[in-house]
């Protein structure tokens, strides 16, 4: 019984992490139209940084090597992870956004991801090379006296609070002039520029913000799982987050969270319990091609996703406009776009 609970709790934790990641990617891709094909690299940066700022120095004789080796108390490693991921996101954006075509941006991010993988994998002094970091303790587990196998008791509440915070942030942006301008950049960069929007700066900020959220997701991952290594951030991982955003509904926070539930909670967690047959790559391979195919089909038959983007009729003016135009229907109604 308790084993089943633990499995379900783990699945829930992964869903929470993916919901956070989807909201971050949605800000970039869904809201602003920035194609970041190496989103998961920023999750990895967050995971590694949260790890090396909480692990302490590697035990003597273990052969492990990594930078920092600090033992900072919760929640500082999560903050450090967010800052580091945001910093590198900004750095990438500074170079990649200098060209207008979205192809170049996508190409640059993809290439940066491959190179980041190579560097982490080949530099043992950074994050212990291909073996990665392990033994990261769950925050507060000592104080609260929670055994490692039940660490979801701590991580689910932390994750839920962070998810709520990230959601609220994204929601505020949606309803603000900021969110409106970001969407204008997505729809026509030229027109946004022609009406005084500094599109480079707007995109740069959203790139940093999305990567900060990715870093938070990464920190949660490493604190929950306890380990992270380079094999955990191949290109396919980025595509999985994209699939959650595209299936759920780009531009809609509720949609992308539903997408995270669908992709992570049902497809990925579900496939873990399928029996392995033929070779051990077969089940994940079939799962990934199903995700790829689903994304292509949805892009063709329902590009707006499960829950389409809605634009506020009254927006922040809900119940506040003095003009009271006669054609105003119910004030809280939203329009499907």
């Amino acid at each position: 019984m308790s084993a089943v609970v633990a499995l379900l709790a783990a699945a829930l934790m992964y869903v929470i992490i993916y919901a956070i990641l989807s909201i971050g990617l949605n800000l970039q891709y869904g809201v602003t139209g920035v194609v970041n094909f190496t989103y998961y690299s920023f999750v990895a940066i967050g995971a590694f940084i949260a790890g090396v700022t909480s692990l302490g120095h590697p035990p003597a004789g273990s052969g492990e090597t990594y930078i920092l080796g600090w033992t900072l108390p919760f929640p500082i490693p999560i903050v450090a992870a967010a800052i580091a991921a945001g910093f590198f996101g900004g750095l990438l954006a500074l170079t990649a956004f200098r060209r207008l075509r979205s192809d170049y941006l996508a190409i640059t991010t993809l290439c940066a991801g491959t190179v980041a993988f190579d560097i982490v994998n080949n530099t043992t002094g950074l994050f212990n090379g291909p073996n990665g970091i392990y033994g990261v303790a769950t925050p507060l587990s000592g104080q609260l006296n929670v055994p490692p196998q039940n660490n979801f008791l701590i991580m689910i509440p932390i994750g839920a609070v962070l998810l709520a915070g990230v959601w609220w942030l994204a929601h505020c942006i949606d309803l603000s002039p900021y969110g409106r301008s970001l969407r204008a950049v997505r729809e026509s960069r030229d027109a946004a520029e022609a009406f005084g929007k500094d599109t480079f700066w707007l995109q740069l900020k959203v790139m940093v913000l999305g990567c900060v959220i990715a870093g938070i997701g990464g920190a949660l991952t490493v604190e929950f799982v306890g380990a992270f290594n380079p094999s955990a951030f191949e290109t396919v991982e980025t595509f999985v987050v994209f699939s959650a955003v595209i299936l759920g509904g780009p531009g809609n926070n509720l949609g992308v969270v539903l997408g995270a539930v669908l992709v992570q909670g049902i497809i990925i967690q579900g496939s873990l319990y399928l029996p392995a047959f033929a070779n051990q790559e077969l089940v994940p391979a079939i799962r990934n091609s199903v995700i790829g195919l689903l994304v292509i089909l949805v892009l063709y038959f329902r590009p707006q996703g499960l829950v389409p983007e809605t634009r506020p009729r009254i927006g922040l003016m809900r119940g506040r406009t003095g003009s009271g135009h006669s054609s105003t229907p119910s004030e809280s109604a939203e329009v499907e776009v």
């Binding site: 002039p177 729809e187 026509s188 329009v335």
Partner: peptide
Amino acid sequence: AWPRLTVIENVMV
């Protein structure tokens, strides 16, 4: 026009 923004949002941007 920004096609997926509403008409009034287009003006407000």
